[in-house]
Design a protein around this nucleic acid. Sequence first.
DNA 1: CTAACTGCAAATTCTTTGCATTAGT
DNA 2: ACTAATGCAAAGAATTTGCAGTTAG
Lengths: 157, 157
Amino acid sequence: MPGNINMYRPWWHGKFRGRGYRLTTAREAIVDVLNNTRDHLSAEEVYFAVHKKYPGIGLTTVYRTLELLVQLGMVLKFDFGDNRARYELAVRPKGVKHHHHLICTSCGKVIDYTDFIDDEIELLSLTEKGLSKKFDFEIKSHLIQFYGICKKCREKK
Amino acid sequence: MPGNINMYRPWWHGKFRGRGYRLTTAREAIVDVLNNTRDHLSAEEVYFAVHKKYPGIGLTTVYRTLELLVQLGMVLKFDFGDNRARYELAVRPKGVKHHHHLICTSCGKVIDYTDFIDDEIELLSLTEKGLSKKFDFEIKSHLIQFYGICKKCREKK
DNA sequence: CTAACTGCAAATTCTTTGCATTAGT
DNA sequence: ACTAATGCAAAGAATTTGCAGTTAG
């Protein structure tokens, strides 16, 4: 049962309780969707997925919940260049390797890579410590993206 | 005269000529604005800046030009989480240090940092080489952002 | 109970497109 | 001259907001 500390109280419940936020079906369902995909979903995609199981949950709630999750540091929000926000759980279940992105600025293709990640993470954690101290920031997550032109797009020209 | 190879033919003119793109007043003005700011401007901000000198240039042209510059790899486009694209020259004038971003997910504040950059760049160039080879990608630029909660926002709670 | 949460529809905001005109090369 | 580039107005798409009804604690 990956992602849960135990089967009754998922690890993230505490993030809501005690801060005045309520645990609702919608919120459970949305976190669950994010927890069960390898992709970086748009708000609409989260909505579709949630909607299958709970047709009563609307797009507005999805937006509001995702925003809250970002505020809580549980979810990472980014953009691959198509003016559409993408969401991804910041804390991954154990065993799922952290990845970064390689993006083709010509066709928009996104490649997740896990190569070189270990070295990157090592350096990043050093940088994080330094930045936290210098700017008095509590760093919760990071985003690394490389931009370029993929093979197919290069061949077109 | 930073940013120019010489005063008559800025370094980037060649990027246009020979690819079928024309050199126009609007394009010159837009690159000039990006070249003379330390900020990450939104399309609208670029428009305002350009508009001061050339009131004839419209927002549409700014959008189209920025898009072209991104395609050419001259400009980096990103989003700090406010669903608004930001643009920054990918190639900086000599002497201006490359920076990365530290973003507060609570208030949206963005800090540019240059600390630790040298180590980061060194690692990144290794990663870039590896990725280029493995995925047959021509990497043009990268984006690194750290997300967290700034001091002020932490104190509020 | 009561304040947080929700859905719906309407409103915003950013960005793109169609088309007639202008301007590089 | 030929065609890319532009401005304007209108369209489009993603996200947010107002508000009355609902639900968790």
